[in-house]
Structure formats: C-alpha cells, structure tokens
Design a protein around this nucleic acid. Sequence first.
DNA 1: CGGATTTGACCTGCGC
DNA 2: GCGCAGGTCAAATCCG
Length: 429
Amino acid sequence: MAATCNDAIAVGDDSTASHSNSLVMSFSKKRLALHEVDFFAQNNKKKSQHDHDHDHDAQTVHCIELNEDITGRNRSIKKYGDERNELAAMLAELHDMNAENHRLRELVDQVNNDYNALHMQLIKLMKTQHSHGGDQAIEKGKKEGMIDLMESNTVQALEPTKDNSSKARIIEEKPGEQAFQGWLSNKVPRLNSFMDHVDQASETMSIIKKARVSVRTRSESSMIADGCQWRKYGQKMAKGNPCPRAYYRCTMCTGCPVQRCGEDKSVLINTYEGQHNHPLPPTAMAMASTTSAAASMLLSGSMPSADGLINPSILQSAAFSSSHNNMATLSASAPFPTITLDLTQQSATNSSSQLQKDQLSLLAPLLSEKFMSDPSLTDTVNAATAAITADPNFTSALVAAITSIIGTSHPNNNNGNYNTSGDQQCNNS
DNA sequence: CGGATTTGACCTGCGC
DNA sequence: GCGCAGGTCAAATCCG
C-alpha cells in the first residue's frame, strides 16, 4: 500500500518545473516522511507479524502437545484393544481346556469302568483257581487244626495244580504259601488282587486285628503274668475240652481291645489277638513285641508283596522251625489265622537253654526279614524290629525275657490249689 | 465300698 | 431256617 501512494505523488510533481527544487525538497521530505511511515509501517507489520508468528508458535507447540497427547491416547487405546483381544483369546483357550478336561474325565470314567469289570473277572478267575489248588491244603488244615507247612509243601510237590501256566508258575515259585493262599481265597478273596492297593490296605488292617498269636507255656496259673493287667469278663465251656475257656480283657487302658481266654490243665495256651493301644511297661513289652512280631510275620506271609508275589522264604523258614522243633506252627483253621509259639519245652526243661536259643534263633530271621522290608508295621512291631537289629543276641534275650516272665511270675506251682490252667486267648474284637 | 470275679442270658456267625 | 458253638454283656456275688 505505501508504494502506490508514492507513485501518484511523483506524477503530479513532474508538471511544475519552477517549483521543482522546493517541490523536490518537499517531495523528498514527503517521500522521506512516507519512507518513514513506510518504515514504521513495515516495522509495525514486522512486529505484528512477529507477534503473530509468536502466537502461531505457541499454538503450534500447543497443537503438537495435543497431537502427542492424542497419539498417546491412541496408543493406550490400541494397547487396551490388544489386551482385550489377548484376554478374549485366553478365555477361548480356557473354554477349550475345559471342554478337553470334560472329555478326558469321561475317558477316565470309561477306563475305570473297564478296569472294574476286568478286576471282577480276575477275582472270579483266581477264586476258581484256588478252589482247585488250595482245597486240599485247607481241608488238611481244618482236619488237623494246624497246618504243618512242610507237609503243605510236600502236598503241593506231589500234586501239582492242573490250572493254567500262570498259576502253576506262582506255585512253583512260592511253595509253602498255598495253604495261606487257599485260606485267603476263602476268607478275603480281594487280597488276591495286587492291583487294588487301597482296598488291600484296609483289608489287611482288618485282618491284622483278627490275627492270633498263640503262646503255649506250662503254668499252673489261669493266665500268664506278662506285665499287663487282665480282667476276666467271661468264661465258657469249650466243646471238646473239659476245662473252661476264660476270657480276659486288658485293663491297663480303657478301650484296649486286647483280650484273652484260657483253658487247659498243665499247658497254658495264651492266644493273643490284636495289639495293645497304650504304652506298655517294660515287663509287658517283651511279650507284646513277641506276639506282635509273630502276628506280623504270619500276616506278612499272607499279604502280597509290591510286585504282586509273595516272598516264600518266611513261610518256608516257619515251616522249617515248625517241623524241626514244634515251636512255631501255623494254623489255617477258621476263623482266623493263628501262629502258635510253643514254649512248653522250654518251661519243662529249664536247663535246656541251648534248645531255647536254637528254637528262637529260627524265629528271629523270620521276624527280622519281614520287619526290614515292610514299612507299614505298627510301632510295637517296630520296637521289636529295633530290638532285633540292635541286638545280635536278640533271640537269646527274647528267650530269657519270656521264660523269666513266666518263670518269675510262677516260681513254684506245687501249692496244689490250682490244677486247671488255661488255653488262654487274647481276643481283639 | 469299690473293684474283681462269676455266671446265666443274649448275640452272632457258621454249617447243615 | 434251625441248631450249635463261640463270644460278649451285665447283674449278682465275692473279696480285700
């Protein structure tokens, strides 16, 4: 705008020559003035533009900041969107896993059903086999009351089974256990299954409670003073025995299930069932440990091992001691398995200490072998195990303990006021 | 008087 | 289903 104004003034000044200098001067002044105006105008313009530029920069910075903010928000939105998608994917995966879990569960149920069906068939088959192979031994045991396992071995050797090869192989590898297997198949057929360990354990525990250990001693008293306090709660006339059978219960602790009864004349037979469920005095520990150990040995021979088979050495050893010394005999007669420890010879021949040692030295390996291999034994049995492992002369100590218990309690029985001692049974019900 | 023992009744499992 | 034998209970009795 300033340049247009200057050009119009210059055209008018050229038509007047006489006043040229003054006009020039005036024009120059005006022109200077205009220049000054223009200068200020330009300065103002620059200033204005500068100010405008300054505001524009501020707005630009603000816009940049807003833009960055928007960009950040967009990033957050995008991030949230990604997380949402990821969560949705995880939910979908979880849903798939639930569905697969459901399918697997149905599959497991199906497998369990199949297993149960096969298990029942197996039990049925094994019972059928035992009805062929074990009947003779059982009948023999029932007739004689006691089964001498050496005789059982002979029976098996002379009369091999006619069943399938699997059964025949087991019998060949496990001579001596057929009587117990037969008894087990008759009483607790489920023990024949080595696959159902849980049921096996419960069954075993129930059998342990019913296992009997019969200790034969010579005593004029109606019961053995073995350190425990016994309370008589009943007496019965047993069939086939002129002497009454007395029933005793341990009174050292309320609820202790150990009981026994007695009958006989000169030979005292204490039959223990179960175990004490309370601490025992030292004098009672020997007998309790002995009976517990014997019961465990008896039951161990009837329990399958981890591989489903049974270690025959225990029963073989028992049979050995039985046939040679009449000390440990195993009875498969109903209702419960019974092991009889015959100490009558020791009591009758107190001077024959070597015989006692020899007899119990045969029993000790039976006990220690089983105890060292079976972790599920009770504390009482473990105590016996500790004694066996700690004392190499345990058998001698055990003989001395038992005989001393019996002997010191009844040092001289010639008082004549008691002549019907007992077949004592220690029942656990 | 309280605890232990006796004894007859009752229950249960098993064989016939 | 019935009878028998073994095992348990509980009231009566005994004893220190």
